[in-house]
Design a protein around this nucleic acid. Structure first.
Lengths: 145, 145
DNA sequence: TGTTAATAGTTGTTTTTGTAACTAACAACC
DNA sequence: GGTTGTTAGTTACAAAAACAACTATTAACA
């Protein structure tokens, strides 16, 4: 992409990434939305706790790069619906440890199965090399500024 | 990703794609926002008209897969700010042909330059093979269901 | 032609998100 | 110990997106 006139929106990386991201998450979104009435921020918090275990909102923020207000709201909603419990740290009362309840773990495992199936389906449409390169490059891009 | 316990959020394609998309569009977003007060939908419409020329809102929708209400509002705002003109089709008065004004073309060319520089910078951080595979795979993913 | 269906685009209302300002608790340091 | 600065998390308000219902116009066809 050096000539001005050659420019194609379909080759502009941020645009292309966005299209692929949107398209590829649509079907999964349908599941967590229809089955549990969750938003994207909410399944993300659920998965962070499901995968990495008990942690604070701050830690979720560091790992996911989501803004703290998003996390705060997602946690509040997941708490109301009994998907997680919140427990204040006694030493530092600003901190709250979040942990999935039985209900939360059940939802997590259910969605995990869906996610895995879904990811496998996406992977299957790509060659082994495409898969490897894609994930590797995406991780690189996700880290840049 | 076959074992349940192996699941890593950082390897789940929809999540990974979203992270990369968000990160990679941040700096560009800053430019069209700060320089022209535009939203994502607005620069997209601007680019569609800049690249492909005069067309209707419907055609933009088909090409971009954006919902018609988003397009309608983006067009309205770009019109108010004199970035484009709207001209009703005489044969079919439901249709309106959209076309960039001189002001619109100026903004388009300015942002195009930024986009190209930006895309080049992203490309430069990847190998030629990574670049090729990435774009090819993203286009494939953007088209699937 | 008259009635029904389809299409292009808009508007109104509700959800979500983004931003900034806020509270509560702790830390640092004089 | 009292001031000042930080940090974790929440809340309030403004901006944007999603969704559904709407208008105006054309197409289809009995």
């Amino acid at each position: 992409m050096t000539e001005k006139d050659d420019f194609d929106l379909q080759n502009f990386l941020p645009y292309l990434l966005n299209q692929a991201a949107e398209e590829s998450s649509l079907a999964f979104q349908q599941v967590y939305k229809d089955r549990y009435g969750m938003l994207r921020t909410e399944w993300r918090v659920l998965f962070h706790l499901g995968i990495y275990g008990r942690m604070t909102a701050k830690e979720i923020g560091t790992r996911s790069k989501m803004h703290k207000t998003k996390i705060s709201r997602a946690v509040a909603r997941l708490g109301e619906r009994r998907f997680l419990t919140r427990q204040q740290d006694i030493k530092d009362r600003r901190l709250e440890y979040l942990e999935l309840t039985h209900l939360g773990r059940t939802a997590y495992h259910d969605l995990l199965t869906v996610a895995q199936t879904y990811d496998n389906r996406l992977s299957a449409s790509l060659s082994p090399d495409e898969n490897k390169v894609l994930r590797q490059v995406l991780r690189k891009l996700a880290k840049m500024g």
